[in-house]
């Protein structure tokens, strides 16, 4: 049972890191539906870098760097080129899905390095993710920069008029968000499940994206959502711990995805939307052209 709880927390960490990055993006008005792609690329390059150099540090650096770079590319298409953010996001995802399958394939298999030591029985990334929740909350609600981020997400024209540089603020968010997504992927392949396999995520990124919608763009609710989903995910992998012998293990694997759809539908009901609609960044997904 303790084992299950530890693994659940570690799974939550993956969701949390990626979703925190996406939350930052979306708070600044940029929607990146290619989150899974950023995680795939981050995870794959981190795995390759760590295996070839034998250094975890370089692995995580590679993950952070490629995440930031892809975030920057998404920023270029959506901020500078003012393109359709969904097209760019989907492009990033399919690009990453295709290229990581090719690049990573020779590295298929286990990482073959000593596991990252745990702290009080938990992976250090669990603590890091929790600390980042606090950091993002402090940043968004207690700093001038946070106010700038939230205002460019709500009304970029008004923000610009009050002296905030919309483009720079949004670029900052997409790069930071991309780095967090890359870190999330790297945490997956270097710590949570250090085995590389083609398309190893199989939907983690899309669930993280859904979590941001569930969270009403609030880091604390995001934390709760990530914990619940980490638990659901882990249970779906080993259902015999709670409900032995009921349903095939394959059916259990579908449960987190079905849960996601149910929650997405619930939070979209009119009752919920009257509250949720207020939380949604007003300018989310809208290209902004300076007057």
């Amino acid at each position: 049972m303790w084992e299950l709880l530890v693994r659940s927390l570690e799974a939550s960490t993956i969701f949390l890191l990626a979703a925190l990055g996406e939350l930052l993006n979306q708070r600044s008005g940029i929607l990146n539906v290619g989150l899974e792609g950023l995680m795939l690329f981050g995870g794959t390059l981190a795995f390759i870098a760590a295996q070839t150099t034998g250094s975890y540090g370089l692995g995580f650096l590679a993950g952070l760097a490629i995440g930031g770079l892809l975030g920057l590319a998404h920023g270029f298409f959506s901020i500078t080129m003012r393109g359709d953010q969904v097209v760019s996001g989907m492009g990033l995802w399919i690009l990453s899905f295709g290229l990581t399958t090719y690049i990573g394939n020779p590295y298929t298999g286990p990482l073959g390095m000593p596991r990252i030591p745990s702290i009080f029985g938990l992976s250090p990334f669990v603590y890091l993710a929790f600390a980042l929740v606090v950091a993002v909350w402090l940043l968004l609600y207690h700093t001038g920069l946070g106010l700038a981020i939230r205002s460019v997400g709500e009304n970029p024209a008004a923000a610009e008029a009050s002296g905030i540089n919309v483009a720079i603020t949004r670029y900052l968010c997409v790069v930071l968000g991309g780095m967090l997504a890359g870190l999330s992927g790297a945490t997956y392949t270097l710590s949570y499940n250090p085995v590389w396999n083609y398309n190893f995520l199989m939907g983690w990124g899309f669930v993280s994206l859904a979590l941001v919608f569930f969270s009403m763009w609030n880091p604390w609710i995001l934390l709760v959502g990530a914990l619940l989903f980490g638990m659901t995910w882990q249970l779906s992998l080993s259902p015999e711990l709670l409900l032995p012998g009921i349903l095939s293990r394959y059916v259990w694997r579908a449960v987190p995805f079905a849960t996601t759809i149910v929650i997405l539908a619930l939070i979209s009901t009119p009752w919920f939307r009257t509250r949720w609609g207020l939380a949604k960044p007003e300018a989310l997904g809208q290209p902004y052209a300076k007057e």
Binding site: M90, G91, I94, L95, S96, F97, G98, L99, T101, Y102, I103, N105, Y198
Partner: peptide, 12 residues
């Protein structure tokens, strides 16, 4: 392995 996948990515 995966030249076809890579092509998909490049086309995108």
């Amino acid at each position: 392995f995966g030249v076809d996948y890579a092509l998909l990515g490049l086309l995108m």
